[in-house]
Computed example of a mutant assay.
Amino acid sequence: MNSVLILNGPNLNLLGTRQPEVYGSETLAMVEEKCRAYGASHGLVVACFQSNHEGALLDQIHAAKGVHDGIILNAGAYTHTSIALMDAIYSVEVPTVEVHLSNIHARESFRHTSHIARAAIGQICGFGSFGYLMAMDALRHYYEGRAAK
């Protein structure tokens, strides 16, 4: 595994100022830099993209096929509403890990449903930005397991 695409959905551009008691005080730029540094220390090239627009996220997922070995997706509120993102993940067949900064299962009931989880190889939530690093490790582990077969 060489390349990971980290996709962040709506409102994640407001990290550091939006509800820091829920999402933490790190900005998105800080999270992305942490991910790039962690990836580099593990031999991974990390590309990052954020959009508040569902179609832009879909385009990035489609473009990942044949370019990236894995996707880490924090779809924000689209997690609970977007069949299109789920279908895109199924369509490109790029292993995807769903990440959330907060524990979506301990929050409002509408946040308990994830359409992304059906298509993802796993879900990590509730560990803040550390969840992105965990997701990189999970993708590496996934590929190591496939190589061993």
Results as ranks from 00 to 15, higher is better:
residue 1 M to L: 11
residue 3 S to L: 03
residue 4 V to Q: 05
residue 8 N to L: 01
residue 8 N to E: 05
residue 8 N to V: 04
residue 9 G to N: 04
residue 9 G to S: 01
residue 11 N to R: 06
residue 12 L to C: 02
residue 12 L to E: 02
residue 13 N to V: 02
residue 13 N to D: 11
residue 14 L to C: 03
residue 15 L to F: 03
residue 15 L to P: 01
residue 15 L to Y: 02
residue 19 Q to V: 04
residue 19 Q to R: 06
residue 21 E to M: 09
residue 21 E to F: 06
residue 21 E to W: 03
residue 21 E to A: 12
residue 23 Y to G: 04
residue 23 Y to W: 10
residue 24 G to F: 08
residue 27 T to G: 13
residue 27 T to K: 01
residue 27 T to C: 07
residue 28 L to D: 10
residue 29 A to K: 09
residue 29 A to T: 10
residue 31 V to T: 14
residue 31 V to M: 14
residue 32 E to V: 03
residue 34 K to F: 02
residue 34 K to C: 06
residue 35 C to V: 02
residue 36 R to V: 08
residue 37 A to N: 11
residue 38 Y to W: 05
residue 38 Y to R: 02
residue 39 G to V: 05
residue 41 S to R: 07
residue 41 S to D: 14
residue 41 S to N: 12
residue 43 G to Q: 08
residue 44 L to A: 04
residue 44 L to C: 04
residue 46 V to T: 01
residue 46 V to I: 15
residue 46 V to E: 04
residue 46 V to H: 07
residue 48 C to E: 03
residue 48 C to G: 01
residue 52 N to H: 08
residue 52 N to A: 06
residue 53 H to E: 13
residue 54 E to F: 08
residue 56 A to M: 07
residue 58 L to W: 12
residue 58 L to K: 00
residue 59 D to H: 09
residue 61 I to G: 00
residue 62 H to G: 05
residue 62 H to P: 00
residue 62 H to Q: 14
residue 66 G to N: 09
residue 67 V to G: 13
residue 67 V to R: 14
residue 67 V to W: 09
residue 68 H to E: 06
residue 70 G to V: 12
residue 71 I to Q: 05
residue 71 I to L: 12
residue 71 I to E: 00
residue 72 I to C: 08
residue 72 I to L: 10
residue 73 L to K: 01
residue 73 L to I: 11
residue 74 N to S: 00
residue 76 G to R: 00
residue 77 A to T: 11
residue 77 A to V: 11
residue 81 T to E: 07
residue 82 S to C: 14
residue 83 I to S: 12
residue 84 A to R: 13
residue 84 A to T: 12
residue 84 A to Y: 07
residue 86 M to W: 00
residue 86 M to Y: 01
residue 86 M to D: 02
residue 86 M to S: 10
residue 87 D to G: 10
residue 88 A to M: 03
residue 88 A to G: 11
residue 89 I to Y: 04
residue 90 Y to Q: 10
residue 91 S to W: 04
residue 91 S to G: 15
residue 93 E to T: 11
residue 94 V to M: 06
residue 95 P to N: 10
residue 95 P to D: 10
residue 97 V to E: 00
residue 98 E to S: 08
residue 98 E to Q: 11
residue 99 V to C: 07
residue 99 V to Y: 01
residue 100 H to R: 15
residue 102 S to D: 14
residue 104 I to Q: 13
residue 108 E to R: 12
residue 108 E to M: 14
residue 109 S to K: 11
residue 109 S to D: 15
residue 109 S to P: 11
residue 110 F to I: 13
residue 110 F to L: 10
residue 110 F to M: 10
residue 111 R to P: 11
residue 111 R to N: 11
residue 112 H to F: 08
residue 112 H to R: 14
residue 112 H to A: 13
residue 113 T to Y: 09
residue 113 T to G: 12
residue 113 T to V: 15
residue 115 H to S: 10
residue 117 A to I: 09
residue 117 A to N: 08
residue 118 R to P: 03
residue 122 G to D: 11
residue 124 I to K: 05
residue 124 I to P: 00
residue 125 C to E: 15
residue 125 C to Y: 05
residue 125 C to M: 13
residue 126 G to K: 14
residue 128 G to D: 15
residue 128 G to C: 14
residue 130 F to K: 15
residue 131 G to V: 06
residue 133 L to M: 14
residue 134 M to D: 05
residue 134 M to S: 08
residue 136 M to T: 04
residue 137 D to A: 07
residue 139 L to Y: 04
residue 139 L to D: 02
residue 141 H to W: 07
residue 144 E to Q: 12
residue 144 E to T: 06
residue 145 G to L: 10
residue 145 G to Y: 13
residue 146 R to E: 08
residue 147 A to Y: 14
residue 147 A to K: 15
residue 147 A to T: 06
